[in-house]
Design a protein around this nucleic acid. Sequence first.
DNA 1: AATGAATGAGATTTCATTCAT
DNA 2: CATGAATGAAATCTCATTCAT
Lengths: 200, 200, 200, 200
Amino acid sequence: MPERGGGSRGEKRVRIIDAAIRVFADRGFHQARVTDIASQAGVADGTIYLYFRNKEDLLLTIFEEKMQAINAGLAGELEGIEDPFDRIRAFARYHFSLVQKERALAEVLQVELRLSNKFLKEYRPKPLWQYLGAFAGILREGQEAGKVRADIDIFTAKWAFFGALDELAMQWVLARGKPRFNLDAAADTVADIFIKGIAN
Amino acid sequence: MPERGGGSRGEKRVRIIDAAIRVFADRGFHQARVTDIASQAGVADGTIYLYFRNKEDLLLTIFEEKMQAINAGLAGELEGIEDPFDRIRAFARYHFSLVQKERALAEVLQVELRLSNKFLKEYRPKPLWQYLGAFAGILREGQEAGKVRADIDIFTAKWAFFGALDELAMQWVLARGKPRFNLDAAADTVADIFIKGIAN
Amino acid sequence: MPERGGGSRGEKRVRIIDAAIRVFADRGFHQARVTDIASQAGVADGTIYLYFRNKEDLLLTIFEEKMQAINAGLAGELEGIEDPFDRIRAFARYHFSLVQKERALAEVLQVELRLSNKFLKEYRPKPLWQYLGAFAGILREGQEAGKVRADIDIFTAKWAFFGALDELAMQWVLARGKPRFNLDAAADTVADIFIKGIAN
Amino acid sequence: MPERGGGSRGEKRVRIIDAAIRVFADRGFHQARVTDIASQAGVADGTIYLYFRNKEDLLLTIFEEKMQAINAGLAGELEGIEDPFDRIRAFARYHFSLVQKERALAEVLQVELRLSNKFLKEYRPKPLWQYLGAFAGILREGQEAGKVRADIDIFTAKWAFFGALDELAMQWVLARGKPRFNLDAAADTVADIFIKGIAN
DNA sequence: AATGAATGAGATTTCATTCAT
DNA sequence: CATGAATGAAATCTCATTCAT
């Protein structure tokens, strides 16, 4: 549903980003045509280039900005939870709740991850590291508190945990209309396995 | 190193597949030019189309055939190991040993396939399911033997495990020349977390 | 003589069509390269695809639009002529005058279109039917006026007449620089034969 | 229905020609693939090049040989008919009987006519001239006998007559399964118009 | 004579990006 | 700021023809 005309500068930028998320999610980054994004956003093709350097920059911006919001949301979600294991459980739930609430965004971020990993090796997805860093922090604190085994390599554990969440999210997203499993239950299962797996 | 001339029919097909793996891994599927694959394989451009319908078919064929070999290799690796936990450990080691031995193939299977819309959204990757099915089988037998907790949802656990392995493999592959961590150690860590995580 | 730059939207479309007629007539439809048409028209290759779906659509559009103009011209030419036989004579003269005035267009309409499978087997050339319909109308009126034999099958007669004109035009066009006969005289001869052939 | 194997040299050549007629008629010259002709003929692709220089030569050969047979058949048909007008009528009937008996061949010859006219301007379709020459001969004799008007230009008349026959044949062939008119009746109509049209 | 796998030149078309208005 | 018509580079794939067997 293309929206025409009006809108302040910021408003138009937001419309483009939202349109891009929808189109990227729908067709994938490579199949997405700038023209489609523009018409979805209700702006001219050229207008996109007033706000973004190019198509890739648009993808990266989505990643940067949305991940920032996600990181902020994560911090809020973990706030007040003391026990490392409870924090892990909250992390998993938060991850999947995002996937469910913003399916299109989730799809884009997942693809972006592969793309930026692959082609933009100079671009290191910092916001992702921050996201993972939050999990690493939990583990570190857990080790300091003696609740998490000291022999657990945090680097390995954090990527394993993220990979597990990511893969399940991918499967859920790919199932599209007909989810073959319950994400909320999966959050608990994954958290459960990891908590038991790393506990002292 | 283009190889010219000779070779029986089957031999030429293999050369094309191997060249494609190298080129796909190098430049990515979209950036890979059919001409490059052909010259790497030491055949004419058109020859590729005698063996494969198109570029995407080539990618999918690589997946199909290589995964089949991987599945066979996995079966051989697990053969004779009785204990479910030992089998899980062997699974993780096998996964990472493949990544190390066939880095280019791993890159293609992990990164490029994920970027193929057809693969993700239309084509249902049976050989991948078989791979995961092997892990599911281990869990099932473990539950029957009372060694694995009965409340573990196998679907969730198998994708979580695969996701963990996959993500670590991806990180290792992306680091290219300068691995930031030891894959063999990671195999044991991941196996360890999961084993403890699901054990009764 | 490529014309660069300027020109309103409609003007550019016309330039493309005119260039296409020249190039199609020169090299034939299959041998004609889109790039040649573009450079003849003084536009970029891609511009052609802003105005036409593809190369064949360009050919068909030429047919549609030019035939429409030709039909209009025919109507103007016949206007005011009452006697059916005079109208037939005017028809033949008009047909050949077009061939002489717009040799390139004639070549395209006669030769190239006939070689297009789509044109022959799928696309139904309405404007051509209208052209022939004008002749059929003359015959019908002639029969009603008792000047044309009632036993003449109009369908047969109209295609026979058109075929005769068309074939002679073809021979004249193919002779290129060195016409082996006079078209104006031929117009009268053909008209004469047909008029005597169908008169009561 | 591909025929495999056996066959003497000449036999194989005939099979290729027949297959080519079918395939050319089906798909048109440009769309026809040599591979299809070969498999229809039950020979290998390369074999075709043992008998014909190339695809075009195959088309030309069909034209040459079949037209020769047609010319011979025409001579036979006209033999014994004295009256020029009767000969014209026989000519028209013969033309259309061929179209009906050998529809595929007719289609190929018609297309070939355009193609050879267009691209092979050096190749002057002699057998066609012979065919037309037969008609010209009838007219000439008719003029000498005083039955045909002396002011009729034979060159114009012969192409007009051929064009009329050709166009009607084309319409009949294009109608494919559902002929919209009766060719035999059309033969008489066309002959009738021309006879009256040129008679003294 | 026959085969058919291999060749490789070549052109259409797409679409991200620009820039004159 | 905004537009959107125009650009033009770039790459897949086809298929007539060849030639080693």
